[in-house]
Design a binder for these strands. Sequence first.
RNA 1: GCGGAUGUGGCGUAAUUGGUAGCCGUGCCAGACUUAGGAUCUGGUGCCGAAAGGCGUGGGGGUUCGAGUCCCUCCAUCCGCACCA
Length: 938
Amino acid sequence: MRDYDFKSIEKRWQAEWEKQHIYKVSEDQQKPKCYVLDMFPYPSGAGLHVGHPLGYIASDIYARYKRLKGYNVLHPMGYDSFGLPAEQYAIQTGQHPAVTTQNNIQRYREQLGKIGFSFDWSREVRTSDPNYYRWTQWIFIQLYQSWYNHTTDKAEPIETLIEQFNHHGFTGVDDTVLTGGIELEFPPFTAKEWQEFSHRKKEEILLGFRLAYLSEAYVNWCPALGTVLSNDEIKDGVSERGGHSVERKLMKQWSMRITAYAERLLNNLENLDWSESLKEAQRNWIGKSIGASVFFKVQDRNFDIEVFTTRPDTIFGVSFIAVAPEYEFIHALMQPEQMDEVQAYISLSKNRSERERMADVKRITGVFTGSYVIHPFTGKEVPVWVADYVLAGYGTGAVMGVPAHDSRDFAFARFFGLPVLPVVQAPETHNWEAESYDAKEGRLINSDFLNGFQVKQAIKKAIDHIEQKGFGKGKTNYRLRDAIFGRQRYWGEPIPIYYKDGVPHCLPEHVLPLELPAIDKFLPTETGEPPLARAEKWKWNESKACTDIEGYPLENTTMPGWAGSSWYFLRYMDPTNNTALVSTEAANYWESVDLYLGGSEHATGHLLYVRFWTKFLFDRGFIPVQEPAQKLINQGMIQGRSNFVYRVKGTDRFVSYGLKDDYDVSALHVDVNLVCNDELDIEAFKKWREDFANAEFVLESGKYICGAEVEKMSKSKHNVVTPDSIIEDYGADTLRLYEMFLGPLEQSKPWSTQGIEGVHRFLKKLWKLFYNAEGQLLVSTDVPDKKELKVLHKLIKKVGEDIEGFSFNTSVSSFMICVNELTDLKCSKKEILQAILICLSPYAPHISEELWHALGNPNSIINASFPEFNPAYLIEDSFSYPVSINGKHRTNIEFSLQASPQEMEQKVLSDETVLKWLEGKPAKKVIIVKGKIVNVVI
RNA sequence: GCGGAUGUGGCGUAAUUGGUAGCCGUGCCAGACUUAGGAUCUGGUGCCGAAAGGCGUGGGGGUUCGAGUCCCUCCAUCCGCACCA
């Protein structure tokens, strides 16, 4: 072959690999396993842009490398194919989401195929496939049939709870873990009472403990999308998808008791090899705080207000109590004189959306309820206020106001003229007029039995006293909320639940999957029920064990987007199993993911949920691991680089970037594919859009230069570059190398094609080591010399270390160095080139395979062994020492590495250049580091 | 406000982990071959300076024979969380 013809090479080998099922893996007990996983893509209609494959390329390199190193590598791919966009599209066009999803997947598959990934496609999974979601539903049933036993600290079958109730009854909620407003609370009952409860009552109580449960809860309702959203689906108070407004609404909802796992999710982060920022984001989201709950008795009433505080030491500084407008018992607190004012305030707060409340943190509002509580220690009256700075969903929805030591309470107290009572000694310089003293440092004052203690001891002491006197108890609080699990949507997994007399019941496992029914429109019903209510047969007929018109109503909501992705890593291990979500054998063999690659945007969503479900499945003995992935890398985002043209307002004239300031222009996005190195292809531009056909141009130096800006890569900004177009021009191997060459994997960077030529040229240079200009194979079987072996082993060492250290960018340049050096040495020896091809093959599999076969190897390079590094080839017998005078590099002197320090010092001090710099002064000291440096100190 | 990350030539980046700062690539300059070059090859290219030399890894300070790397401090940019009691 004459030239490096990447098109035919890549096409041929991709077809060949597929034909030979070369990437198919099985549970080979003889080999060590390695599981390399990319985060599940959602197959969007827009297809892949060059940013998406970045992580896939890196993980593919790792997977191929591990395979060359003798590992049995599981490297699968599939699709998270339920989701809002397909459904929104369905609503607009009436096309079934399954159809658009199928089309999108096909497009993804084609794009992925062209890049030459080593995915085992025989293991592909799709969350919207009934054979897959059957097991998602199965897991839901297991969650429904389980509760969290805080004594054994794990999930158990609900039967063990029923057993407890039968024998010991219930003493009240275990509130060592407080999970926010979602959990149901029940009064204590005895074993006998339990046994006598009606079936319905028992079910109601059990729902309060099941890990998947139905409850009334405040949810984030998004009217525009017609569904509820979870906290991680909301950014800055609006929906992440579409940016629609979100309001709080009380609804009956399926939820997941992730809060039961808060402590383990937090603690187990410790040993995970994930980035610090990611772990920190999860810690933040879980938001553990240790403190106490304290009861304040309401004056002249028969109830208490429970507050949560992390500073029980400051209890003598309380000058008011504040409750949230949504506070459960607010009506009991309203005194007749304040009734109207408080009512008005509550309705005002309710109408302010979450976003408004967040945007306007500085505005201080609140109303006195007219009620007082009695301070448990001082017996003094403390006024109770309603204030919207208190969050209903956190803690108990009530706080004790300590203005002296909490800046929010301080602002509130100053605004309404409430007293500021310092109870911790602040530094002399502290200005009580301007701010509170929030630091957890100093000695307690004005605090009775706490006086003189340091804050930390005082907290302990205060909790002791509070508990002793029965005013409250030590308590740990988490910011993490239980996850709402139902969506008022069609395109998701049906929840396998039916209702008998309003009581939820699980479908029997053997009838799964409960398949999505056909419906006429993908919209809510006229009465506002979710789309599934439109289905003709959406009732459960128990006796016939089928969905039928005659029967009990089935659940109408579907599962959220994160359901299917919370366990997919397990399904890849055993994707076609009909009797279990994964077989014990497969799960024991593959265990968990060894390298998980994906974007950091999943920090508090997917990555928390998948950890939750993994722990649950572990607790219940279905799988042997309790973390999904030991090592996780977040690849950086590839941003778009937009180009602009400048049109003189009201004309068809376009002014080049450098001249635009002389005109009154408006900037327009121009398709970056019409621009090369910021120079516009004028002819292509005219053809791009009809209204530009007659455009005129004001050029600079004969060129039209475009402006540029870094933005998100998106269609609307005309800055999308697809892998397909790069592959068309340069080939997949160049794309793969170039994406890695851009810089460290974790770093975000704008896409720029500057430099891709260099990478492509490297492959051509490599080709030239094999073939001369006439297309004859140059390769000889001569024995390599020392220099050539050194070049090779330098590469083997570097590439191995780089891949193990996930530093993919640096190997690309070492390949270039290697090929440059061999070109200089005119080396075309088979032994050398063959080893280089193996090193290169994880990065550029097609050209490596082609040349590998040109060398006469009959089998695929994928099954080769990574060359063994031999340090002997790198040993030199002399070294050109950099010689510094007072730390400044002045000259180099060559010494044998066997040379004694005395000998070296003598020679250095008699060196011409050194003498010149010494200027006759004596050297104070000569530092000699063998093989590194010589430093002369004057 | 809290937390995380990052700051090195015109640009993307590298630096054996405390030891010659700028590898590799791009861009730029010069040259060769060519009817031509958006092909290929060769040489040069951190900044200042004619040179000797000086300066140089966001700023300042420190430790060290020696600092891009370690410590202190300040600044800038990006990301995440944010009235969480």
